Amino acid sequence: MPASQSVALPLRGQFRALYQQLKRAGLLARTPVVFCEGDSWFSTPLAMNLLDWIVSPAPEDEARGVPLLGHGGLFFRAEHSGDCAARNPDAPKRSMFVRDNIDDLMGWYANFEFDLILLSAGGNDFVDGFLRRALGNRTGMSAQQAFQRVLDSGQYETVRKAYALFLQAAIAARPGVPVLAHSYDYPQLIGRPGALTPGNIGVAALLKKSVGPWIGPNILGIVEAERVAFVRLLIDGFESNVLRALKNDARFAATFDYVDLRGTLSQPEQWFDEMHPTEAGFHALATKFRGAMLAKLPAPKR
């Protein structure tokens, strides 16, 4: 097993057992223990996703000297594809930063000496049903007019408050543990559904009817030439009104940070569908994310 080998355990009992083994062996002093919560950028089965590349880097990464996680790491993974950061009115149980789910997570998180929290949250809050409601039946809108409707909806504030609720609970449970999130990148295949084949998601492809699209069909009221610009505004608005605002909030400045991934994947072939990069795309994102993650870990665990 390579020195950088990490273990990801979504089952709580398994995580507890391995954590105790590492503790008894005196290995926690050099092993990063990472708590992960998020959406499909951490959990999609369509390819090696952003978090998969962090947990299990490619052998060629080690050969090229790409910074990995030193002696490996222990990852607790609570993420689920399709979850929203704030309460999802269309599927309330698919909501991350709501009191019931936070209480459940913190009841677990507080009992282990985690070194870092990784978050991937907020993308699903601004697509699909939200876009249908925010843009309504208006037609002929410019990108700026449509974006103003998003601003007027208060959704950025709603998502920011949901993040804040989680951060307050995490800080209270384990003060001083850093939290690292990420922005999303600009989609290149707006309106394109994912191609479902047994080759990319296994036999589940035979049962699942579609993957998206979640944006294209809901922005038809925007002038076609303006749709790409609108989606960029949507992504920029999340970075400035949610992530940057949280980082600049005095309550969270010492704890919360994020990696700005915008502009990393500028080629259509780096995207699987309108919201998810390909495996190679996620690999490029993970290279950026990993560097920021390492900087947040205690020095002996990098």
Rank of each mutant, 00 (worst) to 15 (best):
P298H: 10
L265I: 10
Y109H: 06
D61I: 02
Y258S: 11
R99E: 15
L22Q: 00
A47G: 09
D185Y: 09
L119G: 02
N88I: 08
Q148N: 13
C36I: 14
G72I: 11
V231E: 02
G216R: 01
E269G: 04
R99D: 12
E226L: 00
N88C: 12
F256H: 07
F238A: 04
S81Q: 08
A170Q: 06
G154A: 15
D83I: 11
E62D: 11
T158D: 04
T31E: 01
R24S: 03
Q267A: 14
Q20C: 06
V177W: 02
L206D: 13
D52W: 00
Q148E: 03
N137V: 09
N124M: 13
E226F: 01
N124Y: 01
T44V: 12
Q168N: 12
L118E: 03
A63N: 11
A63G: 12
T197H: 04
L265V: 03
S56K: 13
K208L: 10
D128H: 03
K23T: 04
G191V: 01
D103L: 09
A86W: 06
C36S: 04
Y163H: 08
F114Y: 03
L131C: 07
L206W: 13
H80A: 11
Q267F: 10
E224W: 10
L11A: 13
P67L: 08
P175E: 03
A195M: 07
T287N: 10
D260A: 09
L196W: 08
L69D: 12
P198F: 08
D83E: 14
S56T: 07
E226V: 09
G212H: 00
E274N: 05
K161F: 09
R160W: 11
F230V: 04
R262G: 14
L246G: 02
G194L: 04
S4F: 14
T264M: 07
H71P: 07
E224Q: 01
A195G: 03
S6V: 12
L206H: 08
A245S: 14
R132I: 10
I222R: 01
A286S: 07
K23R: 12
R262P: 05
V159H: 08
S120L: 03
K247V: 13
F97A: 12
L50S: 04
F97K: 09
P67V: 05
D273F: 00
R64Q: 15
P32Q: 01
H80S: 14
L207V: 12
S240L: 14
G123I: 00
R77T: 13
Q148S: 01
M293Q: 02
S210L: 14
E62R: 15
D273R: 09
D100V: 14
V211C: 09
A29Y: 00
A204M: 04
G26T: 03
A205G: 10
A173G: 09
D100L: 01
L11T: 15
F76S: 13
S81A: 11
I102G: 02
G237Q: 01
L116N: 07
F42C: 05
T158F: 05
R30W: 10
N124S: 07
L9E: 11
S120V: 03
L118W: 06
F289I: 05
R251H: 13
F75H: 05
G202D: 03
R138D: 15
Q155F: 08
I190H: 06
K247I: 06
A173H: 05
I215M: 01
D249P: 02
R232N: 04
I201Y: 04
D273N: 10
E239F: 13
L28T: 05
